[in-house]
């Protein structure tokens, strides 16, 4: 489980704080922390990619799949 806490959608330093990903995530897994979006419930991510599709900053959102998905 430990890896799932840090894996999932990765919001980069280029986040402009527009809140779009937080508002549109169908799983309600993202939150604002100050003026940046962060992943609050990474283990509830469905990998649907909506956060990246809607992010206005190219390359800001990336995905890191956990060991359970990558190595099994």
């Amino acid at each position: 489980m430990a890896d799932q806490l840090t894996d999932g959608p990765q919001i980069g330093d280029t986040c402009v704080g527009c809140v779009v990903c937080v508002d549109l995530c169908p799983g309600d897994v993202l939150r604002m922390e100050g003026d940046k979006a962060v992943v609050e419930y990474a283990d509830e991510c469905w990998w649907c990619g909506v956060c990246r599709v809607e992010c206005p900053v190219e390359g800001c959102v990336q995905f890191k799949f956990p060991v359970a998905m990558m190595k099994g």
């Binding site: 508002d23 549109l24 169908p26 799983g27 309600d28 649907c48 990619g49 909506v50 599709v53 809607e54």
Partner: peptide, 14 residues
């Protein structure tokens, strides 16, 4: 709708 209708449900991501 428990999320936002613009991107919710089974095909929100396409």
């Amino acid at each position: 709708e428990k999320a936002r209708i613009e991107r919710s449900g089974a095909i929100g991501g396409g």
